[in-house]
Amino acid sequence: MADFFQLAINGFAIGGVYALAAIGFVIVYEATGVVNFAAGQFVMFGTFAGVAALVNAQLPWPIAYAAALFAMAAFGVLFFLLVYWPLKLSPAVTVIIGTVAISITMQNAALLVFGSWPVRIPSPLEGMTVEVGGAVVSVHALLTMAITALLVGGLWFLLHRTSFGIGMRAVAQDVQAARLMGLKVGRVLAMSWVLGALLAGAAGLLLGPMWFADVNMGDPVALKAFAATIIGGFGSLPGAVVGGIFVGLSEVLGASYISSAYKDLISFGIMIGFLFVRPQGMFGEKIQDRG
């Protein structure tokens, strides 16, 4: 039982990271209609922003995390200006191919700058554990869960309780009507890229101490985040959270109780099952109910 508890905490922690990556992906998709194929590389950039600030520049923890998140926000603005804005009138496929191109560029840029050797980011809570009901649990895992909960709560507050967030949801539903309400649509769209980049950055920073920082880490994260959005319901924020945790739990529990060789098969198998049985996911709406 203690083992199970320990594994469940780890599953929740890694699931929280997938959830953050998935929310970053969903927020951009909902607001701009762009399926961002570079979403995994956004997370990888977040991890390496942590590497640059913590390992290379040796900055103190709080400053390093703030600097890394600031860099991610700036990257969101840059991505909006250089990739999304010039292509905004192009067909969706063109924009998607654009994000694929940027994804490859990002991966290779990281390879050039940081090299191919995996790096380990230490956690400020390195090696710290607590005993909960007989189970030894990593404090970093608990903190990851807490930060995920805090970010999800903050995001919910932004989107539902502030006029800016309500404006963001309005733009996502009808750009032209939002413009006629006097909203500055360009600014709202830019902000959704910034939020997407920040959430991916947070996911990357939290993931750093759990995995090695590796320039190839973006694709597996993106696939897990994608599975999370399918399972939770494409375009749904609560769905992304529940889907992310679901994928994290099934991965960790599956690896321990079934086989670690098949842990990816388990989470993707569940995703495929959902596509067959309930393609709208747990929280998604059927296509005919949307609008």
Partner: peptide, 19 residues
């Protein structure tokens, strides 16, 4: 009629009042 379908009545009017 171009109200925002997935916002509440209050939220729709808040979008109008945001400026």
């Amino acid at each position: 009629g171009r109200t925002f379908p997935r916002l509440t009545v209050l939220e729709n009017v808040m979008v109008g009042a945001a400026i």
